[in-house]
Design a binder for these strands. Structure first.
Lengths: 181, 181
DNA sequence: GTCTATAGGATGATAGAC
DNA sequence: GTCTATCATCCTATAGAC
């Protein structure tokens, strides 16, 4: 009941950051929803930035994980298809999609944050592993869009009459197709 | 020299909003870069929000323009291909791509802004015109990604050794290919 | 671990002189 | 159209009691 206060702060902060944006969310607001005072937050996190850092850590680790796996395999269509599946599986774990969305939507506000820079680097490294030096620009773009369609696909179909499972499946199909550039 | 102060405010605000995010950019900062005081800004714009509104107006008008054209034509592959070209041409006009990027990257911070809501609606209306009621989800996703690849394609190739023209051309090719779902 | 209290500063916005 | 001066409010962060 007490030791997971840290985890509850992350949860509430993540929700508010995603809904309202990072800058627009104050520690007062987070504290209020948590039912404590602002000062209490500072016991768990040194600064507001530290909350973001703790969230970004998960995502960086994820990319590093994918990179390690990717580099141990040959650059084949089969590998790229498997990457889609692996990445999609990770996004399906509840909190991950939210963290991804938050970081994606707040890149500008957080652009100087060292953890964000690191995350962007890792992301571009993943893209780099999807192409060969001789590949045309169009291949690079299309294969990157494959990964991105897993995120965007869910947003684009939010108002469509279809189950979440169907939407997820559709996004995955598009991603795999785009990866076959 | 005096009447374009309004336009210069828009220009500087747009640059700073894009670089740092909307919330992170203060009126003091905008005024400083313009070489006037904060108070002077309030002569040209009633509030900070008003600056955003003036920028969003251009983009909403653009979507409305595209919609009008789109609705006067049959829903054919040919029409969709032409839409890509038309949209790409608009993005190429210098300020438009910047405005699009700003609005895209600050959707969260601006989510309650009426102009932003309107813009999002218009965007979804455009996507709606790209599909028929019976089309599968995958078609909807892929055709939306076509439009998006025009924006993302430029970002994804920013570190690549290629001229801006080549990158633009590559993004356009990917977009057209995706539209042929 | 959480509190009260407060420092110290930036912010959006307004009033009124020029 | 732009200025100075100022307001009211919010913010992050810290000190120190319990």
């Amino acid at each position: 009941m007490r030791e997971n206060t840290r985890s509850r702060i992350q949860e509430i902060a993540l929700r508010l950051f995603t809904e309202q944006g990072y800058e627009a969310t104050s520690l007062r607001q987070i504290a209020e929803e948590l039912g404590v005072t602002k000062a209490a937050l500072y016991y768990h996190f040194k600064t507001k930035d530290d909350i973001v850092a703790s969230l970004a850590d998960d995502r960086v680790a994820e990319f590093e994980d994918l990179l390690e796996w990717l580099r141990a395999r040959p650059k084949t269509p089969q590998t790229r298809r498997e990457l889609i599946v692996r990445y999609a599986e990770r996004l399906d774990r509840p909190r991950n999609a939210e963290v991804a969305r938050f970081l994606e939507r707040n890149q500008t506000a957080l652009r100087d944050h060292p953890k964000i820079l690191r995350m962007r680097e890792k992301m571009l490294e993943v893209v780099g592993e999807l192409v060969e030096p001789g590949d045309p620009l169009t291949t690079r773009i299309q294969r990157s869009m494959a990964l991105f369609s897993l995120h965007a696909g869910m947003w684009l179909t939010q108002n469509v009459e279809a189950s979440e499972q169907e939407r997820r499946q559709a996004a995955r199909e598009v991603a795999i197709k785009l990866m076959e550039a």
